[in-house]
Design a protein around this nucleic acid. Structure first.
Lengths: 182, 182
DNA sequence: AAGCACATGTAAACAGTTACATGATTAA
DNA sequence: TTAATCATGTAACTGTTTACATGTGCTT
């Protein structure tokens, strides 16, 4: 019954209680955390999770015309999350805007294509560096899989591997296209 | 005006004319081609592309109660595709079912989690092998960026890099979790 | 005779994005 | 006083999936 977005929210609330606003902020940019959502989606999903008794809220002090609500994952919510975690991930319907462009790059102007690829490489190199900075030196790493920060580090490492793969591939692509356009 | 799915369809039709059914079959499983779609989406998008004169069809011999239509990309369609190819890809809203599970893996039963990770590794290792087999020996590779098969090879190489990254990361994850669960 | 591959379409439901709407507090 | 951040929600729209609908020809 619970959607994937529901498990993303539960995963954050299982670590610490948060308001819907804080959840939205965390889910707007994925830092070593491969899921995103808009605030409109978060608020409606929180209401759904609450009718299922997977989360609960208490009203806290805050500004604005409505109550400020602090949400917590219930025991039932944590149990459902723990059970979902070990189920097989459904095969992701691979979608990449960049790959779709490269698939048809033979039709494009080579110089303009190389420019686009160079800009894209720079963007991925920047997020690779950001991920590596967040990860810090290897000797400091938590490796106890029963601690919540293990999930942070493991997903960050996946982010690093992912961006390294793209940057390396883009380097090959730029070199090949530059060499053959003579 | 044209959607990303529209460019996926144009990219296939720019190579060879096809029926909607053949397009749907190609878009159901992404082989070195990072986009998927259902047949219902393909037929409606083909109709939209045709009202924009980016594709055209001729009726050919076929079974069933309706006409069988063979679609071709028009000159305008190929031009629009070529222009889109060199525009910056919008930053993909990174979504991974697997990473979301790993983020909350600290809550799960370690043995069940390791089983899930092993099954997932096997699935990715299998598609890595499939991609490598499709790529064939390196000395045979087309590297002329003005040929359509360059796009096939470039995206396949991206697929290989992607799967290698996941398999390597999953190996690290399994080892770390196995070592620390003593 | 049953089932599958070919072939095309519509309808309903769900997921996700963008825009609308309100209002307090704090910093420039 | 103007803008940003905090804070919550609804509405409209777009994209995607799943289900409904029809009918031929080939294979087992």
């Amino acid at each position: 019954m619970t959607s994937t977005l529901g498990y993303a929210i539960l995963g954050l609330l299982a670590r610490e209680p948060m308001t819907g606003y804080e959840l939205s902020r965390r889910l707007r940019t994925p830092i070593g955390y491969f899921w995103t959502a808009q605030h409109s989606q978060v608020y409606t999903e929180l209401a759904r999770l609450e009718t299922g008794a997977l989360v609960a809220h208490e009203v806290i002090d805050g500004p604005g015309p409505r109550d400020t609500k602090r949400y917590t994952a219930t025991a039932a919510g944590r149990a459902e999350l723990a059970a979902w975690v070990v189920t097989d991930p459904r095969p992701v319907p691979a979608k990449s805007d960049l790959l779709l462009r490269v698939y048809s790059i033979w039709l494009a102007d080579p110089a303009a294509a190389l420019d686009m690829l160079a800009r894209t490489r720079a963007a991925h190199a920047a997020s690779l560096e950001r991920f590596q900075a967040l990860l810090g030196p290897p000797e400091l790493l938590v490796t106890d899989p029963r601690r919540a920060d293990f999930g942070d580090i493991a997903t960050l490492r996946a982010g690093v591997a992912y961006e390294q793969g793209i940057v390396g591939w883009l380097d090959w692509l730029c070199e090949t296209m530059a060499a053959e356009s003579d």
